[in-house]
């Protein structure tokens, strides 16, 4: 199972800066294993959903071109310190992970 995400959500002026670090190999399916010569199958996050205070704010779809251990930054206004930020992802093998943090 995937490692927990690191989520940092901070008020800056009237909007919140949300930064997320996900732990994922993001294999493209185009790289060969140096030892075995076998192609490493594609394994990558396809969907990212960010919600604040129970409302979905960002829905992302991503492909294999996003770097390993993806980092995303978003900005959301109309939120307050203390609001709960929930980030979840789903990958192409159906693995999921959801983590939360409060805005500070």
């Amino acid at each position: 199972m995937a490692e927990p995400m690191k989520i940092r959500a901070q008020m800056k002026g009237d909007s919140a800066d949300i930064r997320v670090l996900m732990s994922h190999p993001m294999d493209t399916g185009q790289v060969k294993d140096a030892k075995t010569g076998q192609t490493i199958p594609a394994h990558f996050i396809q969907q990212v959903i960010v919600s604040v205070g129970g409302k979905v704010v960002v829905e992302g779809q991503i492909g294999t071109a996003v770097s390993r251990n993806p980092v995303f930054g978003f900005k959301v206004k109309g939120v307050r310190a203390g609001d709960k930020v929930v980030v979840s992802w789903t990958d192409n093998k159906g693995d999921k992970r959801s983590d939360e943090a409060a805005i500070v």
């Binding site: 604040v52 409302k55 960002v58 992302g60 071109a65 996003v66 206004k77």
Partner: peptide, 11 residues
């Protein structure tokens, strides 16, 4: 590479 939809206050 990536596609994002923004709703409900997301900049």
């Amino acid at each position: 590479s990536a596609y994002f939809d923004f709703t409900s206050g997301a900049l």
